[in-house]
Amino acid sequence: MSETNPVAMLEQTARRKMHEALDAERNKDYETAIDKYKRAMEALEEIIRNYPEHPMVKIYKKTINELNLRLKYLENKASQPIGETVSDEVRVEIKGDINDSLPDFVLKEKPSITFDDIAGLDEAKRAIKEAIIYPIKRPDLFPLGWPRGILLYGPPGTGKTMLAAAVANEINGEFIYLDAANIMSKWLGEGEKNVKKVFDYARNKSKNGIPVIVFIDELDALLGVHTNEVGGEVRVRNQFLKEMDGLQDKSITLHVYVIGATNKPWALDEPFIRRFQKRIYVPLPNKEARLKLLSMLTSKIKIDEGVNFDQLSEMLEGYSGSDIKDIVQDAYMIAVREYFESDGKSETVRPININDFNEAIKQRRPSVNKEMLKLYESWTERFKAI
């Protein structure tokens, strides 16, 4: 079984626990739901504690805050006698004007990342420029309209979220981050209302001349094929479909774009796939991208002159961008460990050599196996639209 990087593993744990909590809520097993949400929070807190520089830390903190609110709601509900309603004090409600208010599960903060910070993915960057950046700069050149929905799919750790975040900088627009799992698990009673509020907010901003990117992570949780659905989930998806259809109106030139990301495109409900006119495969990095990524990742640490990046990039074939970052960190940590174990005999951390990289690679296998890659290739043959 292939290993995965620690952050991806902890993210997966958090999402799994949130889905388990949702199942418990459906069955009115509030004690179990509370326990599962706490386990999800613990996984996110471990990421923040061990990887404070991770670009998604702010999102993890926001999710933890929202989970805390959900716990208060459930703890109060669990303590209520059967038939009584939950106190309004612990209900999570949206107040304020549409101009300055968004549902609390939304992270509205412009990322600092740009296309230059992303190694490779030239085909994906080109498709995004043609679908979003060019129409914003010269809408008069697009009399037939332009895509408003873009699906980014591919293995985990390949840069889908980074691509979406970079677009907001390229267009000097606003970036709204939605986690589909949050929508489905925490807002079953108000999900469709909050989806509408997000799009109302985005349209209002666009009317005032500000392009808006609505990014939906883990899209399959929102638009996937599910069993044992409850009515709230169906209403959320129907509301999302309604909002997506509204963006396609050729008579409206608002610059509101929906970018969805998924590691499991085959789980998407087919009627929704066509709402994303651009469906872009974000693959594992090729050799050129691996070379650039190694250069970027090692720019702030000392590397031994004997390290051949060309040879190293060959050794890293099959690894995701996230995997490669972890390998560089692991190799560097070998030298750091030696520094702390040297009893002060060395003043600085020695340069990283090829043996360090060899050891790091030996201890970390690719997080994506060949069978999974075949699934992506098969889905691409059916649905790719770039």
Rank of each mutant, 00 (worst) to 15 (best):
Y201V: 02
N355P: 04
R148V: 02
Q239P: 01
R39A: 13
P265I: 03
D100W: 06
E371D: 15
P366E: 10
I128Q: 07
A385M: 11
H255M: 08
F272H: 05
S87L: 09
N182Q: 14
K129A: 01
E233N: 10
F340V: 14
G173L: 00
L222G: 02
G306W: 00
E31I: 11
Q277P: 08
T253W: 05
S313C: 10
N169G: 14
E25F: 07
E338P: 07
N65E: 15
D35Y: 05
H226P: 10
Q277M: 11
R70I: 04
Y37Q: 02
F309S: 12
A166Q: 05
E45S: 13
E305Y: 07
L316W: 06
E359W: 02
K17V: 01
P285I: 07
E31G: 11
R290A: 03
N65K: 14
D330Y: 00
P135V: 01
E3S: 14
M333N: 15
G120F: 03
N228E: 15
E25D: 12
I386H: 09
R49A: 15
R275T: 06
G120V: 01
P265C: 01
D179Q: 06
E25S: 02
N99R: 15
A164C: 04
V106I: 15
G83D: 05
E31V: 11
K362Y: 06
D122S: 15
E371T: 11
V214G: 01
P211L: 03
K205L: 01
D356C: 11
K264C: 03
Q239V: 03
K250E: 13
Y177M: 09
S299I: 03
P52V: 07
